[in-house]
Amino acid sequence: MSEPINVSMTVNGSRVSCGVEPRSTLADFLRQTLALTGTHTGCEMGVCGACLVVVDGRVVHSCLMFAVQAGGSVIETVEGLTERAAIADLQDAFHLRNALQCGFCTPGMLMTAYSLLSQPGIPTRDEIRDALSGNYCRCTGYEAIVDAIENVARDRDAASIAQTREEAGA
């Protein structure tokens, strides 16, 4: 009755197809079956934000989804975003600003930042804090994380203005 179901999805650009027990959360599936241990589980009830991943373009808790629900979806984890350099500037900014200590919340923080900064404009510090409202960090006190995200937002905005000018001038 609760036999494994064959599920196909795209994870970090690769097609994955395998039998999954329906009760396996997406988080456990990514961590245990696919060995993508960059996704962490801190509460298994959608409160801490350590397990955030991108599912079909939106950042969601992988602990609040069963892997079978993700059948047919496109999923990206911190490993995937790292490999395609989608968050390289965020990672650099976190590193330089020391916006992590134990690092356990960090992949989730990066997911939130990735999502927030995919929208145009420079978010205010309050908007950054609001976006982080579901990401728990016990080590940093959050300010360094807010700083790092703000720095990247400014840099990206400056780069996009420069590019617009360049295009206009060309």
Partner: peptide, 21 residues
């Protein structure tokens, strides 16, 4: 100076006991 070992954690390559098999 920033922490050299933090880059690994940022890349999702931390090795926590919870990860070990």
């Amino acid at each position: 100076v920033p922490r050299p070992n933090a880059k690994r954690l940022l890349a999702g390559r931390g090795r926590y006991v919870t990860d070990f098999v």
